[in-house]
Write a protein that binds this DNA or RNA. Structure first.
Lengths: 117, 117
DNA sequence: GGTAGTGTGTAGTATATAGTACACGCATGG
DNA sequence: CCATGCGTGTACTATATACTACACACTACC
């Protein structure tokens, strides 16, 4: 599995190839952290940053925040609070979907979205 | 909303009414924490304990761990890791279910469980 | 009246989280 | 040659998390 830092570096470098403003320093400034910190995170010398910082990174890099959070070993706070409001309901559902293939879960997502029920 | 400590105290006292081994001291011993700590948690003087300790409490008190964790403002680690494995999929699904009524979500749970698809 | 068990107050601690501050050496362009 | 920007190394810090250790006062029993 690819780590958070590794992925971050790849994505940033890719952006940087066409836009110099994606240097460690400038990105760090926009995201609101020290360059050295971001550098260490990218090289896995520091654990992934907070949810807030990850969200800012996702926004700057045009990445999916949930995916980035997942790579960081986290689940976004808003998802957690949805679950916490009805813990039994969501716990059951999620555990039951644990081993379902992607396409099955995806079908469920679509069904709910399209209101077919 | 009822707090974690409040709920814990109520449940424990209820058990204690028919079984003296549910004193703060004895329960704390079985759960593996100091009595004074448990006491403070019950009175809200300390924030809720770790997931591990909450799980032990749930087991001793015969309570649903997910519900107890929810009252503590947490979501169980195993649910989180299920979500992290397929972040986009689960994030979409959960956010879409956010405002659905209980019975609708419940129907979904049953559908999945009974394999009607 | 001592012993066992109870709840709780005070003080302290170990570890993790989430970073900052600053300096260094390299490279590139004017 | 020097100013600008770059990535990174070292050292430090503030806050939160999750508790422990011990003592105290009270009650109940025999």
């Amino acid at each position: 599995m690819e780590g958070f830092g590794e992925h971050l570096r790849e994505v940033r470098e890719r952006r940087r190839a066409v836009d110099n403003s994606f240097s460690v320093r400038q990105l760090a400034a926009r995201v609101g952290v020290e360059p050295s910190y971001l550098s260490k995170v990218e090289r896995g010398q520091q654990p992934p940053p907070s949810e807030k910082t990850i969200a800012a990174l996702a926004s700057e890099l045009d990445e999916d925040p949930d995916v980035l959070l997942a790579l960081a070993g986290k689940v976004s706070g808003d998802l957690q609070s949805i679950i916490r409001r009805r813990p039994k309901l969501f716990a059951d559902l999620i555990r039951q979907l644990k081993d379902m293939p992607d396409h099955a879960v995806l079908r469920l997502v679509r069904e709910v979205r399209d209101g077919e029920w």
